[in-house]
């Protein structure tokens, strides 16, 4: 894997590469019609064209960094087919049900006071859980990928553990710990602090369930990236905090963003764990997913799916924000931008 030079070294490699024949195959890569999809993401294409024509004639075979069109189309079709079957159809089912009684009823379902209360609670929960887990994720990824120590595999597995815990069990253990008959519950109640069947419990359950997301996105990335840049910065006299904010953070920003987006989506959509600890008090401790369940159980299917589609909308909005950042970054370091 390529050791990425940081800081000033960048320009040097860039310049060197332009003069080397290595850039050759790249020029053949993007067929004309291919670059249409996302102009923002084709930063390399123009620059790489330098010195290409001569190169092409010298190499009779198809460059090994590009797939033939039929493979490209075939794979794309296969991937899209898979997504359509497993994600597209269920999502379409939700939307068609949501609008089955017309747009007016759709909006009415969202304007109900109890729906609004559920939306507020969900936003609050995600707003607390996501930053907390982001901070943790950065610390954990730094620790796990930048140092060698015994028990690291175990630590990694423990970080993943909340994925392996059934959300229902996650809720249950929180009740067992903080409930009226739990380990800490009686003491907390005596001090006027209520956790389960109140908002803190909902937040806690969400933090538990979304715990590994950011760390899990960052670790493989930092692992693949190696430590050369940071070590270089260290030899140049940068402090730990400087290395972290100036070198590491800019490098991981896309992974971090993915982590945040996923963590946020899951935090807002969590059902099982929250269902156990919330107590289902309408208008007080109901989150969007719980409100969906209530409506569904009242045979109000259109309203249930309308509120559920709101979660889709929130997810799409977060993704749009992500896309916007990618677009603003102009493809520099954007995950999809480097290749076509």
């Amino acid at each position: 894997m390529d050791p990425r030079p940081g800081g000033g070294a960048v320009k040097v490699t860039g310049a060197v590469r332009e003069q080397l024949p290595v850039a050759g195959p790249a020029s053949v890569r993007p067929p004309p019609g291919d670059g249409a999809g996302g102009g923002a993401r084709a930063p390399g294409a123009a620059g790489e064209a330098v010195g290409a024509p001569a190169e092409r004639s010298s190499r009779p075979r198809r460059p090994a960094t590009e797939d033939p069109a039929w493979i490209r189309r075939g794979l794309t079709a296969l991937a899209l087919g898979f997504l359509a079957l497993f994600v597209g159809l269920p999502v379409a089912a939700v939307l068609s049900e949501a609008f089955s009684k017309g747009a007016a009823l759709y909006l009415a379902a969202l304007r109900e006071p109890e729906a609004l209360a559920a939306i507020r609670l969900t936003l609050l929960t995600a707003g607390i859980a996501v930053p907390l887990n982001a901070a943790f994720g950065l610390a954990a990824a730094w620790s796990v990928t930048r140092f060698r120590y015994r028990g690291k595999d175990l630590l990694l597995s423990l970080i993943d553990l909340p994925f392996g815990v059934s959300p229902v069990i996650a809720g249950m253990v929180i009740v067992l710990l903080f409930g009226a008959r739990g380990l800490l519950g009686p003491w907390l109640v005596a001090h006027g602090c209520r956790i389960v069947f109140a908002i803190p419990g909902v937040v806690l359950a969400t933090v538990f369930v979304t715990f590994p997301f950011v760390a899990r996105e960052l670790i493989p990335f930092l692992e693949a990236q190696g430590t050369e840049e940071e070590e270089a910065a260290l030899t140049l006299g940068a402090s730990g905090w400087q290395i972290f904010t100036r070198v590491t953070l800019p490098n991981v920003r896309w992974s971090l963003l993915y982590g945040l987006v996923l963590c946020n989506a899951r935090a807002m959509g969590e059902f099982g764990a929250v269902s156990v600890v919330s107590g289902h008090v309408r208008g007080l401790t109901d989150t969007i997913p719980l409100h969906v369940e209530i409506l569904y159980d009242e045979y109000d299917f259109a309203a249930a799916f309308a509120v559920a589609s709101l979660l889709l909308l929130l997810a799409v909005l977060t993704l749009a924000a992500k896309q916007l950042l990618e677009w603003r970054a102009g493809g520099r370091g954007a995950p999809h931008g480097s290749r076509s």
């Binding site: 990425r4 030079p5 940081g6 800081g7 000033g8 960048v10 320009k11 490699t13 860039g14 590469r17 930063p43 390399g44 620059g47 790489e48 995600a126 707003g127 996501v130 930053p131 982001a134 904010t245 953070l249 800019p250 490098n251 920003r253 971090l256 963003l257 945040l260 946020n264 924000a321 950042l325 603003r328 970054a329 102009g330 493809g331 520099r332 370091g333 954007a334 931008g337 480097s338």
Partner: peptide, 27 residues
């Protein structure tokens, strides 16, 4: 990452951490 290929100097249009922090803080 394509950063090294960019003709622009490092630290250009997207300050990264600060915007990320801002994003999180805003949310």
């Amino acid at each position: 990452m394509s950063a090294p290929r960019s003709p622009e100097p490092e630290g250009g249009r997207w300050p990264g951490p600060r915007e990320l922090l801002l994003f999180t803080a805003l949310v």
